[in-house]
Design a protein around this nucleic acid. Structure first.
Length: 272
DNA sequence: GTTGACACCTGGACGC
DNA sequence: TGCGTCCAGGTGTCAA
């Protein structure tokens, strides 16, 4: 699924391909993805140009002259750039047609993705943006900040997936960060020592930086569109490695469920 | 305020 | 081969 590294890869790639093209028409084939009044969504974007693409956590933020278009890829959202005359493929739900006959298509097998259109002045008041925590690598993501936020009687794995605490981590990277930090995913947030919190900060930055450098992770449920294939899956130590040997100690990687999510860890390196 | 269950969705894996 | 069931997972909502 697209996590912060995949979203960043999409952002960087799209920036090179669609900036400053005038939008001629917006077509919506599956309405539920759009969280804004539909006719407004379609009409307001006509004659606008995407002048920048930003990102906040897992949200892509397309900037036009007057509006921000927010797009969350959720599980399987992807963007494709095609000629407007190309046949619409199955699962292509939204189409932005530019005046040079290029079409930006949003493809989402599971239809979980969301899009929101807002005026520029409204962006920082949107709850989707306001509630985002700090991203890995952000200087504000400090031990003191996390000590407060993680002080809960809840497994650390669950807390790492909470976007209001650390923004951008998903299941894959949460598994990998905990392995790198040598923390058992079942350990509760309020049991963590300062050193362990420090390890989470360091590991999350290192892993996300490396994943972005490698174009994200390409696994069964997420293959990057736009001709970019992530290579970070080669670096995964525990995620989807159940039964494989731990790269550090050769103990078998185990799989458990925490908060309904598949969690992979090394029982020896990540003792509770 | 916190926590867990469920819904949204579809495709693939698996068992029969 | 075909059918039914389960699983995958990010996030929002709702009930306890």
């Amino acid at each position: 699924m697209p996590e912060i590294a995949e979203v960043e890869t999409v952002r960087r790639t799209l920036k090179k391909k669609i900036l400053n093209k005038k939008i001629q028409e917006v077509k919506v084939y599956y309405e539920k993805i759009v969280q804004t009044y539909l006719s407004k969504f379609k009409n307001d974007l006509v004659n606008q140009k995407f002048i920048d693409i930003k990102r906040k956590g897992k949200w892509l933020i397309f900037e036009t002259e007057k509006f921000y278009l927010l797009s969350h890829l959720r599980m399987e959202g992807k963007y494709y750039i095609k000629n407007k005359n190309e046949k619409l493929e199955k699962h292509e739900h939204i189409e932005f047609i530019f005046d040079d006959n290029i079409s930006l298509r949003y493809h989402d097998t599971r239809k979980f993705g969301k899009m929101i259109l807002c005026k520029k002045s409204e962006l920082n008041n949107l709850k989707e943006i306001k509630k985002q925590g700090f991203e890995p690598g952000d200087k504000k993501l400090t031990v003191d900040y996390l000590k407060v936020k993680l002080n809960k009687n809840v497994p650390i794995k669950t807390l790492l997936l909470d976007q209001t605490i650390i923004s951008g981590l998903g299941n894959i990277y949460a598994n990998e960060v905990l392995f790198a930090a040598k923390i058992n995913p079942l350990k509760h947030g309020n049991e963590l020592k300062e050193k362990e919190i420090q390890n989470i900060i360091i590991s999350s930055k290192k892993i996300i930086d490396e994943a972005i450098k490698m174009g994200g992770t390409t696994i069964k449920s997420y293959t990057s569109s736009l001709g970019v294939t992530g290579r970070f899956q080669q670096k995964l130590c525990v995620h989807k490695k159940e039964g494989n040997k731990c790269p550090n100690c050769h103990t078998k990687i185990e799989k458990i469920k925490i908060g309904g999510r598949s969690t992979y860890y090394c029982p020896k390196c990540q003792k509770i």
